[in-house]
Structure formats: structure tokens, C-alpha cells
Write a protein that binds this DNA or RNA. Sequence first.
DNA 1: AATTGTTCCAACCGCACGACT
DNA 2: TAGTCGTGCGGTTGGAACAAT
Length: 229
Amino acid sequence: MRKPCCDKLDTNKGAWSKQEDQKLIDYIRKNGEGCWRTLPQAAGLLRCGKSCRLRWINYLRPDLKRGNFAEDEEDLIIKLHALLGNRWSLIAGRLPGRTDNEVKNYWNSHLRRKLMNMGIDPNNHRLNHINVSRPQTSNASAGAMSSGLKTHANHQSEKSQVENCDQVSDAGSCLEDDSCGLPDLNLDLMITMPSLNSLADVEEEQKLVESNTSSELEFTHSPTLVLFR
DNA sequence: AATTGTTCCAACCGCACGACT
DNA sequence: TAGTCGTGCGGTTGGAACAAT
């Protein structure tokens, strides 16, 4: 049994105050990142090391880009999600100034719904025949879809809906049949030379791609993934 | 103006993994 | 080899903000 990362009795929780932020910023400016476990005490913060790390990485780092996601960022997230799945840190690594938490939140609150409204299963990026055969008649249907799907109580129903989609999806055949009407996803793949965070990332992605050619991600049958070839 | 419902996001939690002893 | 530590990751939640009634 591991010890907790810090003595939870003596730590603050919840939102960070400006004073706390400033202490953290000042400390890291002086001493750099690292050794998160001892940082709180050294910086005079009543916070757990993990909490400090999260705060710094997600909100205080000077190189962060705040604000809305651009359209090309959205496209890239969708494409990378199709390739990598919920590997938010890898996806965020391709989006300069964005964090995994930010990308994850944006996916869950915007992009998932956007894909569903387009008739695409956000879990496997395949066309959902139910929605396609009942083309989005209006914003009303889209609205109906979006409303109520996101509450915590409704997470389960959303999940089961997606699972149902799996059973009827046959995106591969759809690809070959233009009559299915692929939604305009603007999926021209233009992944530029990655702003690589590390060599390890590259190696890992190469491994992924190599292994995917044979099994899990079916390049030849996925309407989205086929665009990566 | 008050109440209720919904959305969004900051933060927490538990787990996994690599490094080290 | 097993245990511990430090860190990173992804899933989940709490609550503030906003919208609808």
C-alpha cells in the first residue's frame, strides 16, 4: 500500500488563489520545474505536489495558449483522436500551447457532440447509420441530441447510445459508397512536421502506427483513418 | 426576479510506469 | 526481485456560469 503523495490533512484543496499562483510562479522561476513532491513545502504552499504540478502545467506555464480552439486545431484533434484514441497527452503534444486537460475537456464538451451531430461515432470515428439514414433535419435535431446528453446523470444513456451505434456501423462499406454522403469533415491531413516534445513521443507513435497496420485500427475499413494513408 | 436545468472547465483521484534502492 | 518513490496520465466530479422558464 502506497503512502499518499502528501499529508492530505495539511493541504488545501479546490480553486487556487492568486497568492498561491504567485508563490508557485515565483518558485518555479527561481528554481525551475521538478521535484514536485518537495516543491510545495519549499515554495510555502499548503498544496499537494500533484496539485502544484497540475496547476503549473495546465494554467500557469508561460507558453500556454488560452482561448478558443481554432478550426484547424479542431480538425487536428479529431484526426489525432481517430489515430491515437484518448491519448490526450500525445494529442496535446501536437498542439503547441495546449494541454492534455484542455484538449480532453474540449473533446468532451464540443467535439464529441459535433461528431455525433454529423452522424459519426466519436468513439471509433465511423459513420453511424442511424443518424445518416435520418439526416440532420435541422438544428432542432442537433439541439435535441446535444441537450441532455451531457449531464452526469445522462452519461450512461449516452454511452449506451454510442454502443448501439457500434452495432450498426459499417463505415468501411460506406466509404466505398459515396451515396452514404460523408459529412464534410475537411479531413485533408496536413500534419506538419511535429513540434515534437520528445524523441520518445515520436518513437511511441511510430510503434503505434506500425502495430496498427495489422490489427486494432483498421485503416482499410475506417472512413476517417483511411484518410491518413 | 427567482427557480430550475444545462454546460463547461478546473481540479481531484486512482492507477500505471520507470527509476532507484 | 521486491518494494518504494516520483511523476504522468486519463477518467471523473464539483460547482460556477449561463440559459431557459
